[in-house]
Every structure is written in structure tokens, then in C-alpha cells.
């Protein structure tokens, strides 16, 4: 899923400092799963903003809503009749949500309430870690099912660097060296030779280097 962290409250307050009436819009997709922008988080942020503004003697009216997803136009359409009742819309979805809203409602201000961070998963309750860099050409089968692009600090493709020590990366002891894990796994499987194969250079055009990406599935298009 896409993982995000909520922005600090003062930053959000600053964005709406001149507004009196806003729509706070959550998303039932990834940000609900990573406990950043679902129903509960919408309620908590709304209450926090209201307390802060009451304190200033400048109360803020907030309508709380949660859309099924903010990355599909049909759900964005659900607020077509009401979107302009507000001074601004704060989206608690990942970076996709506020953009879909901005595109659908060009005359409205749409503000992000979260910092979208990475593609990852929950390694334990309350802790999420990056697992995918979205490079567009998955090659984790070459590396024992572990991704050195997302998980090596330098995205190295040919083995660990000199900064690998006792399984940890040199940037921090709590960051594991993914190359240490890859090599150990290959050794345990008796397949260390796999890493000696010569492969052609990775085509980074499928990653961000090729510009904004688009995925077209002809069988689904209308």
C-alpha cells in the first residue's frame, strides 16, 4: 500500500488560517490501512483543528467525510454537489487524492493533510516499512525476492558496499543491509552463483527517469 504520515497540525492550521468553513476528506484506501487518513484520523484531525481555532477565538467549521477512494473519478464525483460550499478542502488521502480533487474542481482550493512517503507494508502493529520503489521493471527474482532498489540506501544492484557492517547499513544501525540479507539467503539456498550472472544494465526509463508514467490496459478502456 501507499504509506503516508500526517503533517504537523501547525502546518495544516497555517494552510487554513484565513478559512472559516472547510471540508475534511478522508479516504478508505491505503491511508485507512496505514491509519493516517481514514474515518478515525479524520475525526481526530477535525477535533484538533477545532480546538486550536476555538483557542484563537476564531472557530473553524469542519464537515467530515470519507470517500471510498480518492484515486478514482467516480468517487471524487460524490462531492460534486457540495464541493463549493466550503472555503477549502483538506484531503487526508495520499498525494493522488488532492490532485484528483484539484483536477475535478479547478475553482476550489485543495490542501494536503499528509506527507506521502513510500510503498510499503506493516512489519508490526504501528510500524510500516518501505518495500517497493516503483521502478517500473521488477527484478526482485534476481535478488532472492528482496528489492535492493527500495531497500539499499544506495539502490546498489551488484552487492553490498563497504558500509555494510554486521548486517546493518552505515546510515543507521536499525536499517538492515538488504545486500547482507540477499547474500545470506542465496548462501542458505546454495544459489550464490545466481548473483554472478551477468545481466544487462537496468532500464531506468520505466522509473521516474522516463518522466511521468502512464499505464494503459486496452481491454479496459472505453
Amino acid at each position: 500500500m501507499i504509506v503516508a504520515d500526517r503533517k504537523p497540525v501547525p502546518e495544516i492550521l497555517e494552510m487554513v488560517s484565513n478559512d472559516q468553513n472547510i471540508l475534511l476528506l478522508g479516504c478508505k484506501g491505503c491511508v485507512t490501512v496505514c491509519n493516517t487518513g481514514g474515518l478515525k484520523e479524520v475525526q481526530v484531525l477535525a477535533s484538533t483543528l477545532k480546538i486550536a481555532r476555538k483557542k484563537e477565538g476564531n472557530p473553524l467549521k469542519i464537515k467530515e467525510e470519507v470517500l471510498e477512494r480518492q484515486c478514482d473519478p467516480e468517487y471524487i464525483e460524490e462531492i460534486r454537489d457540495s464541493y463549493d460550499n466550503y472555503d477549502a478542502i483538506i484531503s487526508m488521502a495520499c498525494g493522488v487524492g488532492p490532485q484528483f480533487l484539484s483536477e475535478a474542481y479547478p475553482d476550489q482550493r485543495v490542501l494536503p493533510a499528509v506527507n506521502t512517503t513510500f510503498f510499503g507494508g506493516a512489519v508490526r502493529h504501528g510500524v510500516w516499512e518501505e518495500r517497493c520503489a516503483g521502478c517500473g521493471t521488477c527484478g526482485i527474482h534476481h535478488f532472492g525476492g528482496l528489492c535492493p532498489i527500495a531497500r539499499c540506501s544506495k539502490s546498489l544492484l551488484h552487492g553490498p558496499c563497504g558500509g555494510s557492517a554486521n548486517g546493518s547499513c552505515e546510515i543507521a544501525k536499525d536499517v538492515e543491509c538488504i545486500w547482507d540479507m540477499i547474500v545470506r539467503k542465496k548462501m542458505e539456498q546454495g544459489r550464490l552463483d545466481d548473483l554472478q550472472q551477468i545481466r544487462s544494465a537496468k532500464d531506468w526509463l520505466t522509473a521516474r527517469d522516463g518522466g511521468p508514467r502512464r499505464s494503459i490496459r486496452e481491454e479496459l478502456t472505453e
Binding site: 478515525k40 475525526q43 481526530v44 477535533s47 484538533t48 477545532k50 480546538i51 476555538k54
Partner: peptide, 11 residues
């Protein structure tokens, strides 16, 4: 008791 219960009390 949830976060929202405590915040709403203050609110």
C-alpha cells in the same frame, strides 16, 4: 477510551 473521546471532551 479512544483518542477522539479525550479530544472531544476538551473540544
Amino acid at each position: 477510551v479512544d483518542i477522539i473521546h479525550l479530544l472531544r471532551a476538551i473540544e
